[in-house]
């Protein structure tokens, strides 16, 4: 009836058909997934735009000024005046004295440095 080669060929054909079908089906599923992700990304992008606009709305100087004025007393807020602005270089140097140096060295020696960094094993 059927020769072995026929059986083999039919099996191969069926397998190929099944494989093709599965591949196409999978591809469609992936496309669907892709579309979903694209929609999601688009939505997120739009949300980011809105949130950015929202953020700049909330950080408008006009709004911050209004808030600062409202909570001025409560929080003890005051505008910075020019005489309060200085750099480190503007500060007078601390005069060097023997006692001061000795104390500094003693302080540095008595307490081990507690700072840990990622570079060195504590």
């Amino acid at each position: 009836m059927f020769r072995t080669s026929d059986v083999v060929l039919i099996t191969v054909m069926l397998a190929a058909a099944a494989f093709t079908y599965k591949t196409k089906h999978d591809a469609e599923a992936k496309y669907e997934e892709l579309r979903k992700i694209e929609r999601q990304a688009e939505l997120e992008e739009d949300s980011i735009d809105i949130l950015k606009a929202d953020w700049s709305l909330l950080t408008q100087p006009a709004r911050l000024q209004r808030l600062a004025e409202t909570y001025k007393d409560e929080l003890g807020l005051e505008p910075v005046e020019a005489p309060r602005i200085a750099e480190f270089s503007d500060l007078p140097k601390k005069p060097l004295t023997i006692e001061g140096l000795v104390n500094d060295m003693a302080d540095a020696g008595s307490v081990p440095d507690q700072t840990t960094t990622g570079a060195v094993r504590p």
């Binding site: 739009d46 735009d49 809105i50 950015k52 606009a53 700049s56 950080t59």
Partner: peptide, 9 residues
């Protein structure tokens, strides 16, 4: 870099 004008959807 503060936003002065933007498009919103």
């Amino acid at each position: 870099g503060e936003v002065l004008a933007t498009d919103i959807k």
